[in-house]
Design a protein around this nucleic acid. Structure first.
Length: 431
DNA sequence: TCTGGGGTCCTAGGACCC
DNA sequence: TCTGGGGTCCTAGGACCC
């Protein structure tokens, strides 16, 4: 049996854990640049505020109902996520961290404990220790566990837990979930399925394999239907030592304002590459593929495509900031055009190998050990004195290296709460 | 005026290999 | 007119997820 533990309105719940006055009120958390709504409290959902909606489109609603709109505070959410996952890891032999607010647990062999009661215990404990409310779905496949979780979230009478351990319960749950709410059914597939007269998860579960393959992206769709029928097709991939090992790492941003000058954009790209390299080192990988993209305003008047990208395979896989910045800069040189107004850029790393196991370079006789030591020092300094204390100069862009002016690509974050748990200057004050 | 930032997996075609 | 069978790697793009 799998359990899927999912935090309710995660970002809003993190904010509420430190600001009890937000309890019972409509609250939303905003994306970067305070642009879109990415997390909503139950009260905000009830007002009809949609997920992903731009803030400016619901400004009236927000004002009329005194909705608290907060900038996103990823330092806080990441830390709270770690705490929740830490508790979950102690509750099951295996844990797969699926996203910042969700994890699959393998409960194989624990059936005799009474899974329903055990799930309620986990839920209560997470709430008590972290103040984060969760819902738990339990079922023989991941897709059914997701579905059970979704039903548990929508139906308060279930007390946050739903166990699907019999054909009767499964049939009951499948019948009450619209097909578009099934894990793996997005907008395109939902439209197709409705046209075919399939409107519920129950209907989808009765689909033939041929039909699933034809309409739902081949083997992916076939697996989805089998999982709904109770035949597991997706195994748990346990997260080693409670952390996620990614297959790709991206750092991308919409700029705070439009940028044209090469020096400004190269500053942004260098900063993104530095950040990506940091994440890469933290998971102990080296990357062999680097992609840079550059976008114009996708809501503006310029016809698509709005994005151009360039990719390169590194001669030797690397996690060195200066090395990756150098290649990123070269790629940017191929993309940037004078006079064009840009709104967004990004750096993506791919093709990972485990650090120390990759192909060695003929031309770096020490195997890159010096650079590795340098990067360790860099990370240690930034850990000790705060993010960005030591950077490659390219990342400063056209700024003077002194002074506190923000970089031209930085956006607004006017409603950010303190990083209560990760920054000495911003510790929680009680009183 | 204002419109996010991450990820995953799969397919298909072309170049190239034996 | 006929002209094999089996791979890999790379790129681009599409669908989905949170």
């Amino acid at each position: 049996m799998f359990a899927l533990v999912d935090c309710n309105n995660f970002y809003v719940s993190c904010e509420r854990a430190f600001q009890p006055r937000l309890e019972g009120r409509p609250v939303v958390v905003l994306s970067n640049n305070d642009g879109c709504i990415v997390s909503r409290s139950a009260e905000a959902k009830a007002l009809g505020i949609a997920m992903g909606e731009p803030l400016f489109k619901v400004k009236d609603l927000v004002q009329a109902h005194g909705v608290q709109a907060l900038s996103s505070n990823y330092a806080l959410y990441g830390d709270m996520s770690g705490r929740v996952m830490g508790h979950l890891a102690s509750k099951a032999p295996e844990l797969e961290i699926y996203s910042i607010d969700e994890a699959f647990l393998s409960l194989h062999g624990m059936e005799r404990w009474g899974l329903d009661g055990y799930a309620r215990e986990i839920r209560a404990e997470v709430k008590k220790r972290t103040h984060i409310p969760t819902c738990i779905g339990l079922a023989p496949t991941k897709t059914l566990a997701k579905l059970a979780n979704r039903v548990a979230k929508k139906d308060p009478s279930l007390g946050g837990v739903l166990l699907l351990d019999s054909p009767e319960r499964r049939t009951w749950a499948l019948a009450r979930v619209p097909v578009e709410d099934v894990w793996g059914i997005g907008r395109q597939y939902a439209t197709k399925l409705h046209a075919l007269g399939i409107t519920t998860a129950a209907g989808l579960a009765q689909c033939s394999e041929a039909m699933a393959r034809q309409h739902l992206g081949g083997v992916v769709g076939a697996r989805l239907v089998r999982e709904l029928q109770g035949f597991p097709c997706q195994a748990l991939s346990p997260s080693e030592d409670g952390t996620l090992k990614r297959q790709s790492i991206a750092c991308t941003r919409t700029f705070g304002k439009s940028l044209s000058a090469f020096e400004d954009i190269v500053g942004a790209v260098a900063a993104f590459a530095s950040r990506a390299a940091e994440k890469l080192r933290r998971q102990g990988s080296v990357a062999s593929v680097l992609t840079v993209f550059l976008s114009q305003d996708r809501f503006g008047n310029t016809p698509p495509p709005h994005t151009r990208s360039a990719q390169t395979t590194l001669p030797v896989a690397s996690s060195s900031t200066p090395e990756l910045v150098r290649f990123a800069r070269a790629l940017l040189g191929r993309l940037w055009q004078p006079g064009v107004v840009y709104k967004k850029a990004g750096v993506i790393l791919d093709g990972f190998e485990k650090g120390g196991e990759g192909q060695l370079s003929l031309f770096a006789p020490d195997g890159g050990e010096r650079v590795e030591r340098l990067m360790q020092k860099l990370d240690a300094l930034n850990q000790r004195f705060g993010k960005g204390s030591v950077q490659v100069a390219t990342a400063l862009g056209s700024r003077m290296p002194t002074g506190k002016s923000t970089t031209p690509w930085h956006g607004q974050q006017q409603r950010r709460t303190p990083a209560y748990t990760t920054c000495w200057e911003e510790l929680w004050e009680v009183g």
